[in-house]
Simulated scan of single mutants.
Amino acid sequence: MADARGVLVTGGNRGIGLAIARSFAEAGDAVVVTHRSGQPPEGLMGVRCEVTDTASVDAAFTEAEEKIGGPVEVVVANAGITRDGLLMRMSDDDFDSVVDTNLAGAFRCARRASKGMIRARRGRIVFISSVVGLYGGPGQTNYASSKAGLVGLARSITRELGGRGITANVVAPGFIETEMTGELSDDLKKKYLEGIPAGRYGTSEEVARVVRFLASDDAAYISGAVIPVDGGLGMGH
């Protein structure tokens, strides 16, 4: 394999983010996860970070670089929140907070990471979106908007920085087996499964493998792409 790289995964303390972080660590990379509270997962380095705050993002990257002993070469922007609600009842705060975390938070991390990547003339930025970003979801105008926005973000970064050995791509998971989906009722699970051509939920590890591929040398000529990992649910991305 290639030399170990510095990898930062936002929201890497649970769910899909944790699977991504562990996948990079198992491959020999130096991995730091961001978390808002508590302790980092066992075996992984962690830094506190609030992605809605520029100063917090800057400090987290600086601390991560110290822990890694070098620059952050791979950034996976995974941190996200939901505040679902019907359009006519959704408050400005419910809309703004989701967009500020999911979309602007990813922008802040990419902006901070780009400084070192431009100097090094290499880098990998991967945004974790959702099938909902392009498929839509009732009660999720805020979440879907934030996740769709990541596509424009990645493609604009690609046009700006593509000539400097930097790629920016989007991974759009569908229904993935996590604590969240585990709490769904059997009737709701059955309904969701009927819409998935693969006939099953995905695993966090399946998402992690795609992220690792996009961060690898094998994917050096892939940028501005949206890769669905959804069993065929959102075909047409």
Rank of each mutant, 00 (worst) to 15 (best):
G123Q: 09
T181S: 13
A120K: 12
G137H: 01
T101A: 08
R159D: 02
R200S: 09
T34H: 08
T82N: 10
A30Y: 06
P138Y: 02
R121H: 13
A172R: 07
S37R: 15
G163K: 09
V229H: 01
D3N: 07
L134W: 03
T101R: 07
R159I: 02
E206C: 03
E42Y: 01
A154T: 10
A208M: 01
V98E: 07
M180Y: 01
A30W: 03
I128E: 02
G231K: 06
S204W: 00
F107W: 15
P173Y: 02
A104I: 15
G6F: 00
G105R: 08
A60V: 11
V75R: 03
T158G: 13
L150N: 03
G162W: 02
N78S: 14
E65M: 11
V210H: 00
G231T: 08
R200H: 08
D218M: 09
R36F: 09
F175N: 12
E50N: 15
T34D: 08
A113P: 12
A27V: 06
V57F: 11
Q39S: 15
V126W: 00
Y201R: 12
S129F: 01
E65R: 14
A225N: 06
S130Q: 04
I176R: 05
M180P: 05
S56F: 12
R112I: 12
T54M: 14
D3E: 09
E179R: 14
L150E: 09
V229K: 08
H237C: 05
E177H: 11
G136D: 04
G232Y: 02
E183R: 15
C49H: 11
G69A: 09
T203M: 00
P197V: 02
E177M: 13
R108W: 06
G38H: 09
G43M: 10
V72D: 05
G199E: 06
M117F: 03
V99L: 15
G182A: 10
V32Q: 02
G136T: 10
G105Y: 05
Y201A: 09
S216Q: 04
G43N: 12
R89A: 13
M1W: 02
